[in-house]
Design a protein around this nucleic acid. Structure first.
Lengths: 127, 127
DNA sequence: CTACCTGCAAAAGGTTTGCATAGCC
DNA sequence: GGCTATGCAAACCTTTTGCAGGTAG
């Protein structure tokens, strides 16, 4: 793959941002440093970077997909109140992949855990 | 909520089909028994039934969302080769929700686990 | 009878793609 | 110089919505 200012910028944007941005958010942020980058370029690079394993893709099912610069084993907790996405470390003893492989004879490559709930702030405000 | 032939049909379609159909698939199958049901109705009812907790909504992130008639605790294993979605029972000792609540002080309502890998058949064929 | 639900079609996102041009190597 | 990546805009797909007419209670 050839180098490009845009791809570097997109990768940096995601790596430096723990907010799990959507493509649109990456686009907006990238535009601050490269005003005429296009949404198409952002999508093409997000897809390329995921395929290379340099970023991760999160399916959240409400609206649009999100991207994550963290590659270590963890899961996501989404607040149903404010939409914030929190990272949670996953302890080793949750050997879910191995468990699934034993149960099914599949070979598991990837695991995606998304929980939904309410953060402490929203619990105070909403209830 | 008022009763309707269409809603009953949609619910049945999902309950009787372990394939975790997409909205389009539910629509096609429902049309066999009710030829002029509309896609809009399917979407409206899928959404209503999810909200009532009568079916579950799965975020799979490739293309379109899927629906599941099983309500017990389990997770999904998607074959990257053929796209098949397999159910896997989740043992009680994986107390993931409780773990997340302890770690974060969130109140967790819902957990969604999706794994991706290759099924035995595809492993034979593809590799 | 009234309120909710449907079918239809248009609109609304989000994401992908074709094409001509620009930029890396 | 050749080949890849970009910008732009149009195309695509899934999902949502507005409206007029139908149906359950």
């Amino acid at each position: 793959m050839k180098n490009s200012r845009q791809r570097t910028l997109i990768l940096e944007t995601i790596k430096n941002n723990p907010i799990h941005p959507t493509a649109k958010e990456v686009y907006n942020q990238a535009r601050e440093k490269c005003p005429n980058i296009s949404l198409g370029t952002v999508y093409r690079n997000l897809s390329a970077l995921s395929e290379l394993g340099l970023i991760k893709h999160i399916a959240v099912s409400d609206g649009c997909d999100r991207y994550d610069g963290r590659l270590d084993r963890h899961f996501h907790l989404i607040c149903s109140g404010c939409g914030k996405v929190k990272d949670v470390e996953l302890e080793k003893y949750f050997a879910l992949e191995r468990y699934a492989e034993e149960q099914t004879d599949y070979k598991v490559d990837e695991i995606d855990i998304v929980m939904r709930g309410y953060c402490p702030e929203c619990r105070k405000t909403l209830f």
